[in-house]
Simulated scan of single mutants.
Amino acid sequence: MTAGTQHRQPPARVPAPPGAADVERVRAAVAAALAGFLAEQRQTLAAMDDSLVPVVDEVCALAEGGKRLRPLFAYWGWRGAAAGAAGVAEADADVLRGVAALEFVHASALVHDDVMDGALTRRNRPATHIGFATRHGDAGLHGDAAGFGVGAAILVGDLALVWSDELLRRSGISAPALARARGVWDTMRTEVTAGQYLDLLRADGGLPGPGGALTVARYKSAGYTVQRPLQLGAAIAGAGPDVGDAYTAIGLPLGEAFQLRDDVLGVFGDPAVTGKSVDDDLREGKQTLLIALAEERADEAGRRLLTGALGHPDAGAEQFATLRTLLEDTGARARVEDRIADRTAVARAAIAAAPISDEARAALDALAVAATTRTA
């Protein structure tokens, strides 16, 4: 496929979800669980010292909005397995509180990722480290404002991770279900942290090429976005290994497609929709599959452009626009779009074959399409 041709999109057949109202019900329940938990934590931190209130306020801001995809995958993973599972049935409300804890894991990863990337914005507001650096200056504190901001952001991310454990433990799901969930939960959080390190390593020349980019994507984002949330739901339900294997067959390709869509949006998305500049990923020098594929096919001038502009904070909008043209002209964007379509098709075939309820199968198929055709 050459630049300027129509990119192949994920499958056009968009399934009707079992009920958009039910998706919104899950999102609303997750939001309510987070709000109630954070209100308690605000009182706890304020009782320690009023100066801690901005810390909980920052976690509140991070937890607001979002697509709630991880709780949705976990919830439907539970619903899909619950009918045929041997375990005692859990209450719907308790499971919703439990899967809401995934949003704190996500918030933690976002904050730490922004620190490591030197990002300026997140969801149409200053990144956490930037916001706390500004607070430092506004309060007339001594010392380095930027260093203060980075230190505060690290702690905010750590606190969100601590609270993810607490919310899961206090969700109300039974002790046996909680014990089953812990194995998936621990694996997921280990993978996310390991993936962050692999991302750092790749940024400095380790894990080169397209294979390295996909390895980072799998462990840093893809696994904890789809595969592990699905398996968390299965563990809460007490499902057998056949369901766990089916969820791996769904989660790995779909999680990869989700992350690749994120990479495309980071460079070609609409800032008014995504909440971040299309120059940020290029300025930060993110070594995504897009970049790896462009490097493979770029001519000498293209390689000079990649070396001279990618990851350089002083590069301007014109250079970044030229970089985007290079990603088109080398076919990198088209190849990534093709991989998104392929991985999505593989995941949807696995959903169709999964030993789960028809209702959950329809819901997961709709979520698969939404996750890979999104614009933000």
Rank of each mutant, 00 (worst) to 15 (best):
L214N: 14
T215Q: 15
V216M: 07
Y219K: 09
S221A: 13
T225A: 12
Q227A: 14
G233R: 06
A234G: 10
I236Q: 01
A237N: 08
A237C: 14
G238T: 03
A239T: 05
D242G: 09
V243L: 00
A246K: 02
I250D: 02
L254A: 06
E256A: 13
R261K: 15
D262L: 04
D262A: 03
L265W: 07
F268S: 11
G269P: 05
D279L: 03
D281M: 06
L282K: 01
R283S: 09
E284D: 10
E284G: 06
Q287C: 09
L289V: 00
I291G: 00
I291R: 05
A292Q: 03
A292R: 01
A292T: 04
L293F: 01
A294F: 02
E295M: 13
E296N: 13
D299C: 11
R304E: 15
L305E: 12
A309C: 15
A309I: 06
L310D: 04
L310A: 07
H312A: 12
A315E: 08
A315K: 05
G316N: 12
G316T: 08
Q319F: 11
T325A: 12
E328L: 14
E328F: 14
G331T: 00
A332W: 05
R335T: 05
E337H: 14
I340V: 15
D342Q: 15
A347G: 06
A349V: 10
